[in-house]
Structure formats: structure tokens, C-alpha cells
């Protein structure tokens, strides 16, 4: 529980959320407060406990290998902020 402003900025960068220095200053104590409270979980002995996988017993179903969807380019692109020639477009990526 030692989240400093640098950590806040690093986490925000991982999460792709632009934050200002002032935001980071404000968020650091806030996150510390929450994380400090969360850390009481550490006192629970879980050495012989399995992590929960399915909250209600249920089996993963597998679907048949059948094409059921497609040829709906207009629908897929309908809400796109920017697109042309049937593509979504983004600022040019240099690889």
C-alpha cells in the first residue's frame, strides 16, 4: 500500500486513461485508502482453499462448428466514429 503518484501514472498508462499531474496527486491518497482497506484480506488463511471458478455449479457448453453470423458489415460499422471503404480507421500506426 505504497501507491505514489508515479505508480498512479503507470497504472493509468496501462489502463490507457490520460491523467494530469493534479489527477495523480488527488488519486494517490484515494487509492491508498481503498487499497489499504482491501489489504485486510491478507489476514485470511487461504492456504488450503481453491480460488472460486464457477459461482454456481455449471458446465461450460461447447457450441457446434456452424457459421451463424456474418455479412453484416454495415451493422458492424454503423456506430463507428470513423470508417471508410468498409474498414474502421484509426490514427496511422507505425510498426
Amino acid at each position: 500500500m505504497s501507491v505514489d503518484t508515479a505508480t498512479v501514472k503507470k497504472v493509468a498508462s496501462l489502463a490507457r486513461i490520460a491523467i494530469s499531474d493534479a489527477d495523480a496527486e488527488r488519486l494517490a491518497p484515494e487509492l491508498n485508502n481503498i487499497l489499504g482497506w482491501i489489504e485486510q484480506l491478507g489476514e485470511v488463511d487461504t492456504s488450503s482453499v481453491e480460488p472460486m471458478t464457477a459461482v454456481i455449479p455449471n458446465k461450460l457448453r461447447l457450441r457446434e462448428d456452424v457459421v451463424t453470423e456474418g455479412n453484416q458489415r454495415d451493422a458492424v460499422l454503423q456506430n463507428a466514429p470513423q470508417g471508410e471503404h468498409g474498414f474502421f480507421t484509426v490514427p496511422k500506426v507505425v510498426e
Binding site: 457450441r63 462448428d65 456452424v66 457459421v67 451463424t68 453470423e69 456474418g70 455479412n71 453484416q72 458489415r73 451493422a75 458492424v76 460499422l77 471503404h85 468498409g86 474498414f87 474502421f88
Partner: peptide
Amino acid sequence: TSNAKLFSGAATSFGAEPNSQVSLIDA
């Protein structure tokens, strides 16, 4: 090798028109 995608019912064939083999899940 499969007809449909791993988690959606869109087709997998090669060389289709752009964004023609896209389910709402894939998008």
C-alpha cells in the same frame, strides 16, 4: 481448421471482403 470462429459464429474463410466475417462478438 474450423468453419466458425473460436467464440463466435462468424466464418473463418480466407480472403473475404473486409469486415464481412465479423460477428457482434468479434467487434
